[in-house]
Design a protein around this nucleic acid. Sequence first.
DNA 1: GTCTATACAACGATAGAC
DNA 2: GTCTATCGTTGTATAGAC
Lengths: 223, 223
Amino acid sequence: MNSRRVESPAAEVHDGTVTTDSAQGPPPGKRRGRRPAGQDTRTALVEAARTVFGESGYEGATVRTIAARAGVDAAMVNHWFGGKEGLFAEAVLELPFEPSEVLKILLDGSIDELGERIVRTFLTRWDMTGGGLFQALIRSITAHEQAGQVLRDFFLNQLFQRIVDSAGVENTDLRATLCASQLMGLGMTRYVAKFEPLASADVETLVKAVAPTIQRYINGDIG
Amino acid sequence: MNSRRVESPAAEVHDGTVTTDSAQGPPPGKRRGRRPAGQDTRTALVEAARTVFGESGYEGATVRTIAARAGVDAAMVNHWFGGKEGLFAEAVLELPFEPSEVLKILLDGSIDELGERIVRTFLTRWDMTGGGLFQALIRSITAHEQAGQVLRDFFLNQLFQRIVDSAGVENTDLRATLCASQLMGLGMTRYVAKFEPLASADVETLVKAVAPTIQRYINGDIG
DNA sequence: GTCTATACAACGATAGAC
DNA sequence: GTCTATCGTTGTATAGAC
């Protein structure tokens, strides 16, 4: 794989007058220069990326395709996200796990069934994406330290810290990371390394097997 | 599609230092042809590869660098290992976890303490490599399907299948993959994503927390 | 002599510099 | 865009073991 140099211009608020490629076209083509105000290029790219990455996986998706679907120039991906990987990280993390929505599902019910609900929710959502997104996510983490930071904030601060907090136990930090470790391992084994029979097992089979682990990490005896 | 321009216009096959054994005194450059017996090119490559892969990861390490450190030509990597991938598999998988040695350690003792011994052994060995090799391993399996196959054979067939078999339970295949899932997740969280406080936790703290999970996957109730 | 481990040259691809 | 350095890999001539 490539070690793309990522300058990470990242979250620049003001657009920096990047010229769009002059479209092939005669009339209906895009104009050069800054787009009219109110068009949220960044959001459009993220939404297009979710669709295209989900359809084609990380490898299959091309920056050009995503940009075309978003109706902007491919150079915008570099400008806003520092490259394909950065766009991916943002698109993938927020797509299947919109935090407030997931939290609502997970925290609605008995604490003693939290493990079950967590494993079922994660596996179901990951399965829906076909696993390609998970694999690309892992790759993104190993390739760029920055992606690890994004994942860390999301996984821990937005999800597991709050989940574990709701259980009213001590050592919440360690418990949260232990939960993350088992779930990441589950994803690695099922979608990336593809160890059988786990990779093809029913969701409910895995829920039965793994939920007690998560439950113990949340509010059981860990030391 | 450019044919790279060679600098020296004289494209003589024979030139320079190679020709003379007798006349010219200094034979500092490597001579062509078979080296004197007793020089273990293969082992030298594996050792160099461990160092370089650990420092630079799979992508960052180059075959040429590894070969140079080993004091041999880069083509030897192909000759002995079939390519970069093969060298990586041998260097990363078989050296720190020489299966028979690890199996001996793990299977020596009570079955009810297997979880403890497994977690302690893996963490200790991974910690010794500084985590660089683990990161390189993960990177490798996300990049190349073939590396996943190597990992699968090693982890399951050589290690966990036998371990679980020794416990005399059913569902050994699923149990083995469950064990692998927690250990891979532990490595991901500690060495790649670096979630704190798990990433900096004492080995024994993690042994206490995670060993019961592994133990349950080996011979507990999983469904 | 045969066989093979070895080093050198070169290729196509690609990423970065200019 | 063009050029260049470098990557992994392959082809091949040769030196040394047998």
